[in-house]
Write a protein that binds this DNA or RNA. Structure first.
Length: 426
RNA sequence: GGAGAGAUGCCGGAGUGGUCGAACGGGGCGGUCUCGAAAACCGUUGUGCUCCUUGCGGGCACCGGGGGUUCGAAUCCCUUUCUCUCCGCCA
């Protein structure tokens, strides 16, 4: 969330930014500012009274010590009225505080100045394209048919043991999945990321820290018996490692990568797009997370973009990178680049990665800060993350684009992970 | 699952009702000494909110979380989470 002091000092900038994001409720901002003014005046009153109370208590203590019991009791009598007044004041203050936060979490992040205005993904700005769209031979199939033909993924079996959207990978399909995960991780480690294998369930505080709670509660699977949530992305547990942490400036940047399964309820998604691997409830993903100095976070974003781009290039997939317009930008992001790969048999661009700079929006929720030499107080760090990469659609595109009448041709970079003699699935 | 113990500052660890925001030790930072370093010595060392006369200024809050008792709580009571030990179960 945005800091209250930033809102107080930058009302106009914020309203302008929110407009780009199609978040047109200036009343909310003014409501926050009003509420905060009230909160502060309550705080002043409360603090003054508390100070008075502290003085009296000290006085009573001193009187008792020196044996002046009667005098002490006299002072004591004064306190009861103050105490009552304090009680209501403290309650009001507490309420004001939680009201301010309640409003504050409703305000999305402010887009970076470069973010184009727009309503939907149709208004996103294409940055560049790469790779070659393959010409498929006669009789080529979409990935769900290929998966069946070569016994790589069994969607019906997943329905039996769990439900729709929980595919079962098997044989060379499972092997290819594992190969991709290992290769992604190895590439990330080579690029300086520390590998993390985090818990797959998180508590409420973590869900709040990265912004899934309270707004997107319905997107996560909730384990009610223990009040835990299945992670929708590794971003949640990994970023929360740094919740309530004050780093030293020389610790920055922090670069973490993690492979995890991801669980998403995808409530409200029906229809054509859910076919095969296009949208599932459980999927594998390798994630990269940066914690950066504010002055460097946009360089880091570019760095992450070219890293992810290299992965896609090495897999030989046709791709494009788009900068999300204001309307398509997520609640917490200031700037996001989406990566899409072209899946030839479906004749469709599939999103496989989303790389975002959250600036200090998450960090403020997380209380993730760093000590800047010469600064009296710790400053909020910037957080960024991206997929490198989301497996299902990569798998879909690989199967579809690399199919031949003889079988599916494995990308060369995966040979070492596929075992000897496995240059093709047939 | 049963029984018990505990949670204090960057770390260790004291503190069982009144100058305790917190002893002591370690670490960090600054300094003295030194050609330099070590040692020794001296000083300093949390976070948040807030006010104004924006000052090496003041107030308030914070000793796992929440609530209570009291003029006054790190200290007493309740509750919750977590950690540790023993027993049971178990990959």
């Amino acid at each position: 969330m945005l800091t209250i002091s930033y809102i107080r000092d930058n009302r106009e900038t914020i309203l302008k930014g929110l407009k780009i994001k199609n978040f047109e409720t200036p009343e909310l901002i003014d409501q926050i500012i009003d509420m905060d003014n009230e909160r502060r005046s309550l705080q002043v009153k409360t603090n003054e009274l508390q100070a008075k109370m502290n003085r009296l208590s000290k006085e009573i203590g001193g009187l008792f010590k020196s044996g002046e019991k009667e005098k002490a009791n006299q002072v004591k009598e004064q306190t009861s009225a103050i105490k009552q007044e304090l009680e209501t004041l403290e309650q009001d203050l507490q309420q004001a505080n939680s009201q301010v936060t309640e409003l504050l979490v409703q305000v999305p992040n402010i887009p970076h100045p470069s973010v184009p205005a727009g309503k939907s993904d149709a208004d996103n700005k294409e940055i560049r394209q790469g790779g070659v769209i393959p010409q498929l031979a006669e009789g080529s199939m979409p990935h769900w048919e290929l998966a069946k033909k070569y016994n790589l993924i069994d969607f019906e079996l997943g329905v039996k043991i769990t439900g729709g959207g929980f595919p079962v990978f098997r044989g060379q399909g499972a092997r290819l999945q594992r190969a991709l995960i290992s290769w992604f991780l190895d590439q990330n480690i080579k690029a300086g990321y520390e590998e993390i294998l985090p818990p797959l369930m998180v508590n409420e505080a973590s869900g709040f820290g990265t912004g899934q709670l309270p707004d997107k509660e319905g997107q996560m699977y909730h384990v009610t018996g223990n009040n835990l949530y299945l992670i929708p992305t590794a971003e949640v547990p990994v970023t929360n490692i740094y919740r309530d942490v004050i780093l030293n400036a020389e610790d920055l940047p922090v670069k973490n990568t993690a492979y995890t399964p991801c669980f998403r309820r995808e409530a409200g998604s029906y229809g054509k797009d859910v076919r095969g691997l296009n949208r599932v409830h459980q999927f594998d993903k390798v994630e990269i997370v940066h914690i950066e100095h504010p002055s460097r976070s946009y360089e880091a974003l570019e760095e992450m973009v070219s890293h992810v781009e290299q992965l896609i290039i090495k897999l030989g997939l046709p791709y494009r990178i788009v900068e999300l317009c204001g309307g398509d930008l997520s609640f917490t992001s200031a700037l996001t680049y989406d990566f899409e790969v072209y899946s030839a048999a479906q004749d469709k661009w599939l999103e496989v990665s989303s790389v975002s700079n959250f600036e200090s929006y998450q960090a403020n929720r997380l209380k993730l800060r760093f000590r800047e030499p010469g600064e009296k107080r710790p400053l909020l760090a910037h957080t960024l993350n991206g997929s490198s990469l989301a497996l299902p659609r990569i798998m879909a595109a690989l199967l579809e684009n690399r199919q031949t009448p003889e079988g599916i041709v494995i990308p060369e970079v995966l040979y070492p992970y596929m075992g000897p003699g496995n240059k093709m699935i047939s």
